[in-house]
Computed example of a mutant assay.
Amino acid sequence: MPKLPTLELFFAEFRRSWIQFRRYPAEAIGGIFIITSVFYGLFLSAQYVAGPGLSLGDRLDSIIVGYILWTMVTFILFDISGTLQREAQTGTLEQLFLAAFSTPRLFFIRAVASLMIQMILIVTILGLIMLLTSRFLAFPIVLFLPLLSMIFGAYGLAFIIGSLTLLFKRIQQLFAVVQFSLLFLISTPTEEWEGTGKLISYFLPMTPGAGLLRDLMARQIDLSWDRLAIAFLNGGVYFTIGILIFRWAERRTKQQGKLSGY
């Protein structure tokens, strides 16, 4: 079978994701409504408990940044595992592993193409939250750098979760645990920790990049290039670990003859 160029494969996957997005608009609209409503409900609850004198200032901006980043990371994390589950259910999983491309590259390109479509939803959700809360974030051009470091780390975790899906097929309960653990992890202002806590935060997945984005978008602080280097190192390490674990899980699944089973 002749190999497709990587760029051609990306555009094919992007077109596939766009067709699916257009065919199921109710799902996209429902996702926007639910995610926005959850945040706004929490915001109104906090206002009610604290009274009319509540003034969070840039803390509310930081909370908005953390919530949006968590939404994006959630899309990323469960894209690969969701693809694996759907392909296993329809009986086409084995065909993907026989493709001309290596499996990690295929799933990574498919996930990136899907994320570009999902970014439409994420930007829409962010815009609605800013309108509802009357808090408007800053968008300096350099924010894409820490965002990229976070995306690498998120895909590393996505491949780890995908490995578990490949081995066990159904891990929905784990999804919930990971999802809400990440909400705490990404929303916590680890960039304000001191001493040993700050050192620990450098090893937690995606937290260095999330801290930089809070500084840029909520506090209007200039980008720290030293912390950016740490963020990219963090994302690169988790991405590499995720790929290695996924390759091991692929070999293990093939050895056990469970690739086509569900």
Score class of each variant (00 low, 15 high):
residue 110 R to T: 06
residue 17 S to N: 13
residue 115 L to F: 13
residue 195 G to T: 04
residue 231 A to H: 02
residue 65 V to P: 03
residue 234 N to C: 11
residue 41 G to K: 04
residue 249 A to M: 03
residue 165 T to V: 10
residue 258 K to T: 11
residue 245 I to K: 04
residue 205 P to R: 09
residue 129 I to W: 04
residue 116 M to P: 03
residue 108 F to T: 01
residue 70 W to N: 12
residue 28 A to P: 04
residue 181 S to Y: 15
residue 126 L to Y: 02
residue 203 F to G: 07
residue 198 K to W: 04
residue 180 F to L: 14
residue 113 A to G: 15
residue 252 R to T: 09
residue 225 W to Q: 07
residue 25 P to C: 10
residue 138 A to K: 09
residue 13 E to N: 11
residue 148 L to F: 15
residue 177 V to N: 01
residue 242 G to K: 06
residue 114 S to G: 15
residue 250 E to Q: 14
residue 128 L to D: 01
residue 84 L to A: 02
residue 221 I to F: 09
residue 183 L to H: 02
residue 26 A to E: 14
residue 12 A to D: 08
residue 125 I to G: 02
residue 174 L to T: 03
residue 71 T to V: 10
residue 166 L to Q: 03
residue 101 F to L: 13
residue 140 P to C: 10
residue 153 G to W: 00
residue 41 G to Y: 06
residue 20 Q to L: 14
residue 171 I to A: 07
residue 164 L to I: 13
residue 47 Q to N: 09
residue 17 S to V: 10
residue 19 I to N: 13
residue 200 I to K: 01
residue 196 T to S: 10
residue 23 R to D: 14
residue 139 F to L: 12
residue 18 W to D: 01
residue 146 P to N: 10
residue 156 G to V: 07
residue 163 S to N: 13
residue 163 S to P: 07
residue 188 T to N: 11
residue 194 E to L: 06
residue 228 L to K: 04
residue 11 F to I: 13
residue 188 T to H: 15
residue 12 A to Q: 11
residue 240 T to R: 07
residue 155 Y to G: 07
residue 118 Q to D: 10
residue 67 Y to S: 14
residue 142 V to P: 04
residue 40 Y to L: 06
residue 170 R to K: 10
residue 136 F to E: 08
residue 109 I to A: 09
residue 172 Q to W: 15
residue 157 L to G: 03
residue 162 G to P: 00
residue 166 L to K: 01
residue 82 G to F: 07
residue 207 T to C: 15
residue 107 F to C: 03
residue 178 V to Q: 02
residue 35 I to E: 11
residue 162 G to K: 00
